[in-house]
């Protein structure tokens, strides 16, 4: 087991190194970039050349990469040029991460809370109107573009009804204390209940938007695995034994059907990260996805590199954890 983990970790480092090199070369091979983004219309060949010389962009690309690696080894990923100029790119990632985690967890909670019961009932009433409607409904949820959905939700719940805020992570006048960067948690820890409640309200609309895709997945997996379990002999046995419907549902159907569902839930992380790019942009939510969109638009290469590498790293780590979890849960895997 340990050897397996170590080997995977080594592979992961290899993947990330290769990816960093490819990214670096790719970014440097493109025209324009940072200098154009900073100078705008004011750029003249002279000011352009001066800035390129300052940044070492006039040197061969392998020299630039060597310098980059040298800096990274000292824990310095280079200053951002647009997202938060001057700040180290890694700091920006770490500063934005809690927001995205908070949002993703909440979205996942929504997806699970709705997806499992709906999936269960759809399976129990297979090929009824409820089943067909929820299958089609979950697909529509996936096909509606995020900005359209976000706009509609803002319109209805923030403007027409006035129940929820339009965008952001917290109301501006609150002056809340920050400890962890998870605003709701911070509010609870410091007993600033109004701040916690306010942050929670800010989470609802983006989380619902972000939840549409994981919801569809959880719903479909639940439906499929409940269908599978329903056909098993032990359910028939249980029924013929005269067990109550509640016991059958709790002990036999759900418990057995939940195994694939739980593993799926663990695997939603990457999809949530990706979905956060659009959702956070629409809801002005200061997370990693918002930073990524800004970095793309303004060619903030230092931030881009860190965010893409970090996203890949998170994906690889989650995969590793899932594989380890499999081994722990399933004795058949462990013996391999």
């Amino acid at each position: 087991m340990l050897r397996f983990i170590v080997r995977r970790l080594v592979q992961m480092v290899g993947v990330l190194i290769v990816l960093s090199l490819l990214l670096f070369l790719w970014l440097r091979s493109l025209p324009g970039g940072t200098v154009s983004a900073i100078l705008g219309e004011r750029a003249t060949p002279a000011s352009r050349a001066a800035m390129e010389a300052q940044f070492g962009l006039d040197q061969p690309v392998w020299v630039q990469y060597a310098k980059f690696v040298g800096r990274v080894l000292q824990g310095n990923f280079g200053p951002s040029t647009a997202v938060l100029p001057g700040r180290d790119a890694l700091d920006i990632f770490l500063q934005r991460l809690p927001a995205t985690i908070e949002l993703s967890l909440f979205a996942l909670a929504i997806a699970v809370a709705l997806g499992i019961p709906l999936g269960y009932f759809a399976a129990r009433r297979k090929e009824t109107f409820l089943d067909n409607a929820s299958v089609v409904g979950s697909l529509i949820g996936v096909a509606v573009p995020v900005f359209f959905l976000g706009f509609l939700l803002q319109r209805v719940f923030a403007i027409e009804l006035g129940w929820l805020p339009v965008s952001g992570r917290q109301s501006t006048g609150l002056d809340a204390t920050r400890i962890t960067g998870f605003f709701v948690l911070d509010g609870i820890l410091t007993r600033e209940w109004d701040a916690a409640w306010d942050s929670f309200k800010h989470l609802i609309l983006p989380a619902v938007t972000l939840a549409t895709i994981p919801f569809a997945v959880v719903f479909r997996i639940t439906r499929a695995s409940v269908l599978e379990v329903l056909d098993e002999d032990y359910i028939r046995t249980a029924e013929s034994k005269g067990l109550t419907a509640r016991i059958i549902r709790g002990r036999h159907i759900l418990r057995n059907a939940m195994l694939p569902v739980t593993t799926t839930i663990g695997l939603q992380v990457g999809a949530l990260l990706a979905g956060a790019v659009l959702t956070e942009t629409v809801f002005g939510f200061a997370g990693v996805g918002d930073a990524l969109a800004t970095a793309f638009r303004l060619r903030d290469y230092a931030v881009l590199q860190v965010l893409i590498l970090a996203a890949a790293g998170i994906y690889v780590i989650v995969n590793l954890l899932v594989d380890i979890m499999y081994a722990v849960i399933d004795p058949r895997v462990r013996t391999r």
Binding site: G150, F151, Q154, G162, P165, S167, G284
Partner: peptide
């Protein structure tokens, strides 16, 4: 308040 999305800025004003 920094709101990168154009249409969200308008929604904020309307709210």
């Amino acid at each position: 308040k920094i709101i990168p999305d154009e249409s969200t800025r308008r929604q904020e004003l309307e709210a």
